[in-house]
Structure formats: structure tokens, C-alpha cells
């Protein structure tokens, strides 16, 4: 559906994109991750036909973004960052304008608008001026304008930024529903969003793709973090018992609370089995409160890929 080959974009001397390549198949929901200024928005703006690339090529639904810009624009729905809308228009007027300019036939426009309104949960506010709406509703109007012409491809630049947690959940659900019918490319800073709604993750850093794969694939690349054990009992005694029972393992105190201590045991392939640790604690006469095997999260992956070496450890 989308093909990007060695795409480059420079703003003056600044190189925003340094030759990125990826492909998106029909029906995929792609999460674009990356720090601010990594090149996410630039890539999206090129895909929508707004910006012209400085090098490389990109195509959407078989149409080249430069040569057949208008054809590309007909295949996409776009929600730019910060959701620009005409504040003085009513919601229904605005959606009608978008349907008209997107080339929806006048006879079909009312039903197309009704569908978008229904999907985005806007029926209560269609007669209101956009300026009166809350941020969450504005965001939904932005999404409604992106889907009113039923485009095969949706490009959403930070669709949930600036929303409250309830609104984020709502918009996320909406994106999940849209993902069933459309190919979606979305950028975000919320990592849980990617875990929940995206079938694939692309991490961009300094104008280059540094990771591309499913959430599980990316997490599997990072070493496991080992075991986290919470024990009730005197800290030195527990530590001594654990060290004696698990010779050769690195055991650290991670956190101290009033009556309990959290230990972190080793990492990587060498980590001991859970039973071994549990038995050691119980046999030592202590209460085992919690025992978890920790895996690398998307957050760890993101940090490892986008923070300069050295800083990563300080944040972990």
C-alpha cells in the first residue's frame, strides 16, 4: 500500500530524513515512534503529498507522491499534528466541505458524513461551532474529516497528543476500529498506544529507521532483565540467604520499603529459575511477597535505540 525507498528531505542544511526505506502492506497499522525532531512528521507530510522530498521516492497505492500527487491525495485521509480546523464553521458544515473537496459525490455525501459522525461519536455536536468544542471532540472532528471519503490509507500525526486519559482511550478505540478497514500509519509518543493498537512498529531516530518489526520482535531483541523478588524480612539476612542459595548470581537491592525489600537478580540467559529463588526465600524463613520475571518493554527498546550510549544506563 505504501512504499518508501531511500527517502531524503533536507531543510536548508539540516537533513531531516537521511534515506529511509520501508513498506506497509494493506491492512497494517503502523506505529511511528521516535523522539521529537526524528523525522516522523516529515515522512508523513511527504506521504500526504504536502512536502516534496529532496531525494528517493515514495508511493501510496501505486501512485508516486511527486508525479501523481493528486492521485495520492485521493487515497489518503490525513490528520496533521495539532489538528488544524476552521474554528468558525459548524461541525456538519466542515465535514460537508471536506467531503466536497475530497470529491465525494453530492448524492453520497450525506451518508458518508453520517457514517463518519457515527464512527467518531460526533452526533451530539454536529450543529455546534468547532470553536465551542472540547479538545477531545476537536480531535474526533479531525479524525472524522480524515475518514469521511473512506480512504484506503489513513495518516495520523500524533492523534492522541494533548488529550486526557479518558479521551486517549476513546480515540485509541476509534483507531482500532478504523484499523479494521483502513491501512493506518500513526505517530505517537505514547508507547502503550503502539502496544495496543499497532501491528508493527517503526522507530525513527535522527532521520533514519533504527528498528522495524512487531512489538514482540523488538522487545525480543533486548536482553531479559532477570527476576524481581520482593521479600518481607531483615534485608541483610535475606541478602545473605539469597547469595548463599544462588552462588555466582548478581543480586542487588533495588528498593527498600518499611518492612519489605525488593531485590533484582541477574539478567540475561543466566537468570535462575523462579522455583529456585522461591525455595531459597521460603527455606530461609522469610515471606515471599512477589516474584516476577521481567522482560524488556517497548520503553527499554525505545530508550536503547534513541538515547546516546551511556545515558541509557542512567535512565534504566
Amino acid at each position: 500500500m505504501i512504499e518508501v525507498e531511500r527517502l531524503e528531505k533536507s531543510y536548508g542544511f539540516a537533513r531531516a530524513l537521511k534515506g529511509i526505506s520501508f513498506a506497509v502492506a494493506k491492512g497494517e497499522v503502523i506505529g511511528f515512534l521516535g523522539p521529537n525532531g526524528a523525522g516522523k512528521s516529515t515522512t508523513m507530510k511527504i506521504l500526504t503529498g504536502y512536502l516534496l522530498p529532496s531525494g528517493g521516492r515514495a508511493s501510496v497505492a501505486g501512485h508516486d507522491v511527486v508525479q501523481e500527487s493528486l492521485a495520492v491525495r485521493r487515497c489518503i485521509g490525513y490528520l496533521p499534528e495539532s489538528t488544524p480546523l476552521y474554528a468558525e464553521m459548524r461541525v456538519d458544515e466542515y465535514l460537508r466541505f471536506v467531503a466536497d473537496i475530497r470529491g465525494v459525490a453530492s448524492a453520497k455525501a450525506p451518508s458518508a458524513i453520517a457514517r463518519a459522525v457515527e464512527l467518531c461519536g460526533l452526533s451530539r455536536v454536529t450543529g455546534k461551532n468547532i470553536v465551542e468544542l472540547s479538545k477531545g471532540y476537536k480531535q474526533r472532528v479531525g479524525l472524522a474529516q480524515a475518514i469521511v471519503h473512506e480512504p484506503p490509507v489513513l495518516i495520523l500525526d500524533e492523534p492522541t497528543s494533548g488529550l486526557d486519559p479518558n479521551q486517549i482511550v476513546e480515540v485509541r478505540k476509534l483507531i482500532e476500529r478504523l484499523g479494521q478497514e483502513h491501512t493506518v500509519v500513526l505517530s505517537t509518543h505514547y508507547l502503550q498506544e503502539v502496544e495496543k493498537s499497532c501491528t508493527r512498529v517503526i522507530v525513527v531516530h535522527q532521520g533514519q529507521i533504527v528498528a522495524d518489526g512487531t512489538h514482540q520482535q523488538l522487545c525480543a531483541q533486548r536482553p531479559a532483565k532477570g527476576l524481581r523478588v520482593v521479600v518481607r524480612g531483615a534485608e541483610p539476612a535475606v541478602l545473605a540467604t539469597l547469595r548463599a542459595a544462588l552462588p555466582g548470581q548478581a543480586i542487588d537491592v533495588a528498593e527498600r520499603a518499611a518492612d519489605r525489600t525488593t531485590f533484582r537478580i541477574a539478567s540475561g540467559a543466566e537468570a535462575p529459575a523462579e522455583q529456585q529463588v522461591a525455595r531459597a526465600v521460603v527455606n530461609g524463613g522469610f515471606d515471599l511477597v512477589e516474584l516476577v520475571r521481567e522482560h524488556a518493554t517497548l520503553e527499554d527498546v525505545f530508550r536503547a535505540l534513541t538515547l546516546p550510549a551511556g545515558q541509557e544506563v542512567a535512565h534504566a
Binding site: Y50, L70, I76, P80, S82, P84, G103, Q145
Partner: peptide, 14 residues
């Protein structure tokens, strides 16, 4: 300033 120009220019109009 509002950013609507960007959206306007991604509509299929010349």
C-alpha cells in the same frame, strides 16, 4: 498560522 493550510494542501486540489 492555524495549520489549516497544510491540510488544505493535502486535499486533491491544485
Amino acid at each position: 498560522k492555524l495549520g489549516t493550510l497544510e491540510l488544505l494542501m493535502t486535499f486533491p486540489v491544485t
